[in-house]
Nucleic acid binder design. Sequence first.
DNA 1: CTAGGGTTAG
Length: 581
Amino acid sequence: MCLSSRMFDGKTRSFSITRKAFPESKYVLPVPISRLAHRHLPLLLSYATVSGLLLKVPLLHSVLRSLSTGPVPSLSLSFLSLLHRSGYMPIDNYSLSAALSTAARMPSVVVGAQLHTLSVKLGLSSDTFVLNTLINMYSSCSYPSTARSVLDSAPKGASDTVSWNTIIAGYVHAGLPNKALQAFSQMAKAQVMLDEVTLLNALVACARTCMMKVGKLCHALLVTNGFEINCYMGSSLISMYAKCGLVEDARRVFDGLPERNAVCWTSMISGYTQLGQSKEAVKLFREMQIAGVKVDDATIATVVSSCGQMGALDLGRYVHAYCDIHGLGKDISVKNSLIDMYSKCGDINKAYDIFCGMVKRDDFSWTVMIMGFAANGLSGEALDLFAQMEEEGEVMPNEITFLGVLTSCSHGGLVEQGYHHFHRMSSIYGIAPRIEHYGCMVDLLGRAKLLAEAEQFIKEMPIAPDVVMWRSLLFACRACGEVGLAEYVAERIQVLEPNRCGGDVLLSTVYATTSRWVDANKVRTGIYSSRKTKQPGCSFIEVDGCVHEFFAGDESHFETEAIYNTLLGINELLVAESFLM
DNA sequence: CTAGGGTTAG
């Protein structure tokens, strides 16, 4: 069926009639919802009048909701106002909450605040529906604290579980998971009933803050309340356990799920990735493909990151090609992880190609590229790129961007520039330096052999130095042959990690470089008798698409034929042989 | 009216 109508520009147009737009209604719109524009609204109104839609108020609300969730949310507001002006729609709690939802979706706090004023004037602000949409509006417009004060100033009995859920979700969304958990406990104190949504949001907050105890409590509450562990719950639980480092608990949840969608799989895969278990991550990705679950961009981003961790260039290229075939990877996060993967695998040109080809870049894109240059010894390129980032000014550097910048200065021996960026970080961008940034500075001074200055820098820091910092100073001591300072630093490391021997190993090499063999030996034998351990260094090598792990002194892989062949350059020989035969 | 997973780290 087609409806022809005379439009205001005088031309006659026909619109296909779609039932999809309003599935709950037996009435249909004269215009597909995706093509509706403000100028169509009078037509919509006349259609509504003619078809009797206006007589059915619930249907009208469904029209408004469809407009609000469509591509142009403000259409809903315009239509609402048109209905109101034409006398078809009173401003009551229903229409107000519909309008507030629209303001939340736009999102426009200006429109929302006007509606807020209106609802107070009309005495409707303590209606539960209006209150909840108000809270949602302020949360969606990134004003979680205003949302909170709306809740706090509401009369008793007006708020309910949804009000609190919206507050908690708002804090999580705004990147304030601590506040979310605080609200969660206040909600419990106020004896408001919790539901699945409460626990789901609380779990997300626990994951972001690594609150293992609260996370486990949420899991327990989930079980004791008899709530179903569906895909939503499952993925949040998996993510919470993984972020808290409990990969086995995460896996137990994953294995126990009655059904799993892409989100569940991705949560588990990224759990492995985050905890450095890249091989497991890739294995599970294969299983996901075998299980026939449709892979999406989030999955790819995680898997590519794992490939980068392992240095699995062939595998990474395969996943990259897989994206192209399946129409994936247009996403900014996937490109970011590809840049990271190619730089970690040493193909910095490919990484830069991808970076240059991006239409839109976020802070991750710049950071990952700067880090990539830095890791490949291209300090100059890294710093030039940072300068370009500042010049374009569309994306703000974050604290990790500065780690990349400072590492570049450190590796390039650029002491002056390092100080310069270190100060600009807080003075211009308002980023307070963290222990890692101080660590970079110590590393910078140490590599430049300015040991006294490094020592002074540590003394003047507002935070206590950590092991990593002492260790980089110890490396500097070795380079300078500063035995006296090295002994002091090794002592500091000993205090901070009494069960490890990393400091002693370094100290013995300091003695060795200054030819103090007796002392070097003494430290070495001390290590063996104390039975202290050092985390062994580990490398990856990829041969024929297969990734192998190596530890120092580990010969087990030499039995693997593929590796053996590669190491001895026999592959070429074999090719030659088969050619001769 | 509220709801899940992803990318950077000395």
